[in-house]
Amino acid sequence: MTTAAVPILEADGMSVRYGPQWILRDVSFRVEAGECLGLVGPSGTGKSALLRHLLALEQTAGGHLSLFGRRIDGPDDPVLHLLRRRIGILFQGGALFSALDVLENVALPPRAMHLPTDWANAMARVALSEAGLDPIVTGHKKPAELSGGMATRAALARAIVLGPELLVLDEPTQGLDPPVARAFVTALRELRHRSSSTVLLVTHDLETLRALADRIAVLGEGKLLTIGTPDEVTRYDHPVVHDYFQGWRTLA
């Protein structure tokens, strides 16, 4: 087995349950190295719940999860501590630490690895400029002083500061107005172009999906409905998929 064949993330028959309620059953898919997989589905289909399980933040109700070819036993698996450094996550709404300024937020992952301050800060400033922010202007601002677009960019900088092999984007354009969202998507595309990292994208926004995703997985009715290239998925004959991608053709 060559390293190229190992998927970055593999869900094998994963099920998600909250209390007595099954949210998702038997979800299997792979995120291959270098691709951008879009994870979509109507509201309430368990995208965020699945994402929490894919990041091993919660115990799955069934099935297996592998990250970088390594089977994960649960949220307490000791190997996760090291694997998580290889994953950058842009949380919904940014989840910047409000008590820290922007530079401190972005420098936190390298600082947590006990890297020296000047190196960590240099990495943070480079990551900020990669994400399209001026480190001098925004570095010392508190997250509360940022606009929505800037906060998302700062959160992106924090997600990419360690040069992750897997970048997870949870609703990256939510709450951004169209021009800001477009600029952000362009920045993401450029970033992917430069770093060729693998991306798992959870989004509601078809435009973002169209611009970034190489493959799309559609959740609905408590399961994975279909997965494939945008063309395959949008042609898939299922009422939920059909509804969801209404207007996809006209978007082009």
Binding site: R125, V126, E130, G139
Partner: peptide, 14 residues
Amino acid sequence: EHCRNALQGEEAPA
């Protein structure tokens, strides 16, 4: 050079 440009400029003193 890309990294140097990002690091350039006086950081505002705390």
